[in-house]
């Protein structure tokens, strides 16, 4: 039984950052932006979270700093890709590089360390016991007691599904990606919708970053997003942006990520277990293409 609970909690830990970033990515996906800057936004978010939490002595302000940092990245993306019409792909690549460079530079410049910064002064985001469910014997242990951001991620998934498919903003969002000219001629500037989608994306990626550095651990390490932004992009593309699909895919990745932690004590070398999430991404891409081919036939 303990193995099951351990695996579930490892799965949730692995899934949360990917889910949050992918939910952000789905907004830009529907708005018709080829946004690959999630990785960079997440990394800056993770750094700013530690920065805020360490200097302002509050995890909440740390999370706010993370969101602010990711928003600055989104601002640069908006300036270049939306306002100056630079290629979105190039802007995204440059932003990701900028994020790696900036965070390593600031890590040296502010904390005077190389590699990773950890300190007892960093406040972590607390775990939450759900009021009613916590008391139920089996369900309580399965559903309650996770980090606050985990519940925020669940909420974000439900909310995004509602916003995208049930509200006027969602309709305009999908129209911006589907037919921007049509949206423009109906009096709603598509560029405005795109800007909003990027802002939403930045908030989600900031939260994902904060979870990386303040949720499970309390440290910032160079390049600690470790390709999670790319995996979340793959998740968005795989399910064509559907939030429920993203939730399923993220849990799947979380499962494989959790498996990595689980297999660490076994005889398999860690280098191979660490490959699992990336191999799983390739596997799901394969399944996706097979399904697509079958549908076309």
């Amino acid at each position: 039984m303990n193995v099951l609970f351990g695996l579930v909690s490892a799965m949730v830990v692995g899934a949360t950052p990917i889910l949050l970033a992918a939910i952000g990515g789905t907004f830009t996906f529907y708005a018709g932006i080829f946004n690959i800057a999630m990785e960079g936004m997440m990394l800056v978010g993770a750094f700013c979270a530690v920065l805020g939490s360490f200097f302002l002595h509050s995890w909440f302000l740390g999370v706010l700093c993370a969101i602010a940092g990711a928003l600055i990245m989104a601002g640069i993306f908006i300036l270049f890709a939306v306002k100056l019409h630079t290629d979105e792909f190039l802007t995204g690549i440059a932003l990701n590089l900028f994020a790696v460079g900036l965070t390593t530079f600031l890590l040296r410049d502010i904390f005077h360390v190389k590699g990773a910064f950890t300190d007892a002064g960093i406040r972590a985001i607390p775990s939450v016991k759900l009021p009613l469910i916590d008391g139920i014997p089996f369900l309580g242990r399965l559903l309650s007691g996770y980090n606050l951001i985990v519940y925020v991620a669940v909420l974000a998934t439900v909310l995004s599904a509602f916003v995208i498919f049930r509200t006027r903003f969602g309709l305009r969002l999908r129209a911006a990606g589907y037919n921007a000219v049509c949206l423009n001629s109906s009096g709603v500037p598509a560029s405005m919708i795109r800007i909003w989608s990027l802002i939403v994306c930045a908030v989600c990626c900031g939260l994902a970053g904060a979870y990386l550095s303040l949720g499970y651990v309390r440290l910032f390490a160079e390049n600690m997003s470790a390709g999670r932004g790319w995996i979340s992009l793959a998740a968005v593309i795989l399910v064509s942006g559907n939030p429920w699909g993203i939730a399923v895919i993220s849990l799947l990745f979380g499962f494989f990520d959790g498996l990595t932690v689980f297999l660490q004590g076994s005889r398999i070398p860690t280098q191979f277990t660490a490959m699992i999430p990336y191999v799983a991404t390739l596997g799901s891409l394969y399944l996706y293409s097979v399904r697509k081919k079958r549908r076309q036939a």
Binding site: F80, L84, L90, T91, G101, L102, F105
Partner: peptide
């Protein structure tokens, strides 16, 4: 000056050159 400053400078070069070309 931390040598990582160059990473920032490189990314700024990329952004400014690419955006500058389009503008």
């Amino acid at each position: 000056v931390p040598s990582e400053f160059i990473d920032v400078l490189q990314a700024v070069i990329v952004l400014v050159v690419v955006a500058g070309r389009v503008s």
